[in-house]
């Protein structure tokens, strides 16, 4: 039963993957334009140079050849070569991936660690002052533009603190260029961007846990557990929280692609050398293959994340049956 379900889901995912390659390629094909990626504005380029360079990069080839060439690269695992520096797209991705995972992984972890107690407190004391305060904070976290919050934090913790001669936090990059790269240095660089990102995750998930917990606590089996004389603590944590966390698994599974793409804006604001910043910079330079490769890579993660969340859901909640 489960194997059949997995197989069917897998096939459906394959169709989606093919669809994604087509959509991104059609988009890229439409943007090919008449320039040379990376150096399109250089006045020293003569028209015949442009034509030659474009031919070298394969930009004049018909769509289907382009598509097949790119698929060939994907099958070989290198995702083709960057149009700007000629190295494989996969090497760029692998180069940036650890930085991105460091940032988003930390943010997601902090988000969960704060969201669970916040959500539980909100549910257990719902309607209280504490609940209202936490609600206001998470509603605010949902509405604040990440890039703006980033700017404000830089202003306070980097610019203003430095102006007053106080210890300040670095505002850009993942480590110092000079004498940097050790653990403390990386953590210092991580604090501001991770704060912005985890604030967002915390707001979303704490609301979610709160309502999930409220729902679970009104279930019959909770009443039964209480009627048995079980201590309130055991009721809440053993029966309540465990079941309330099940939907969170889906949510975090859906956030798996966020590991790669979720921090794009924050990466740009903080000059964090991650995958999102890579895609952003390369898009501005029309480095088609790199943008496509990163997009495809992130999409694969979405599909994998969805599948994983579905399966985990069934393991955690035996009431779910696969058919």
């Amino acid at each position: 039963m489960l194997a059949k379900y997995v197989a069917r889901r897998f096939l459906a995912s394959l169709v989606v993957v093919l669809g994604v390659t087509l959509i991104t390629l059609v988009l890229m094909d439409r943007t090919r334009g008449t320039y040379v990626p990376g150096i399109d504005l250089n006045p020293a380029l003569r028209p015949e140079d442009i034509a030659r360079l474009r031919a070298d990069l394969g930009l004049d080839r018909p769509f289907y050849i382009w598509y097949l060439t790119w698929i060939w690269g994907v099958v070989h695992g290198d995702f083709g070569r960057s149009m700007i520096d000629g190295s494989t797209v996969m090497s760029h991705i692998l180069d940036r991936l650890p930085n991105t995972l460091e940032l988003t992984g930390t943010a997601i972890l902090i988000g969960i660690v704060i969201a669970i107690p916040v959500g539980v407190i909100g549910a257990l004391r719902h309607g209280s002052k504490a609940d209202h305060t936490l609600t206001v904070v998470s509603v605010a976290g949902f509405a604040v533009p990440q890039f703006w919050m980033g700017l404000i934090l830089i202003l306070i913790f980097s610019v203003t603190l430095e102006q007053h001669g106080l210890p300040w936090l670095p505002s850009s990059g993942a480590y110092s260029a000079v004498n940097g790269g050790d653990f403390i240095d990386r953590v210092e660089h991580l604090i501001l961007p991770a704060t912005v990102l985890s604030f967002f995750y915390m707001s979303t998930w704490s609301r979610f846990i709160r309502s999930s917990m409220l729902e679970v606590l009104s279930q019959d089996y909770i009443r039964t557990a209480r009627a048995k004389g079980m201590s309130e603590r055991r009721v809440v944590y053993l029966h309540g929280l465990r079941n309330a966390l099940i939907p969170l698994v889906t949510l975090i599974g859906l956030e798996l692609p966020g590991l790669v793409s979720g921090g794009l804006v924050v990466e740009v604001v903080f000059g964090w050398p991650g995958i999102g910043k890579l895609a952003f910079e390369r898009a501005l330079q029309y480095d088609y293959t790199t943008v496509m490769g990163v997009t495809f890579f992130a999409t694969m993660l979405v599909i994998a994340g969805n599948l994983l969340a579905d399966l985990l859901y069934g393991v955690l909640d035996p009431r779910i049956r696969y058919s």
Binding site: V16, V20, I23, T24, L27, M28, T31, P257, V260, S261, L264, V265, G276, A279, F280, A283, V291, V294, T295, A298, T299, V302, I303, N306
Partner: peptide, 11 residues
Amino acid sequence: AIPAIFLFILM
């Protein structure tokens, strides 16, 4: 399935 932000950048 395509992360929205990448789609927005492309478009």
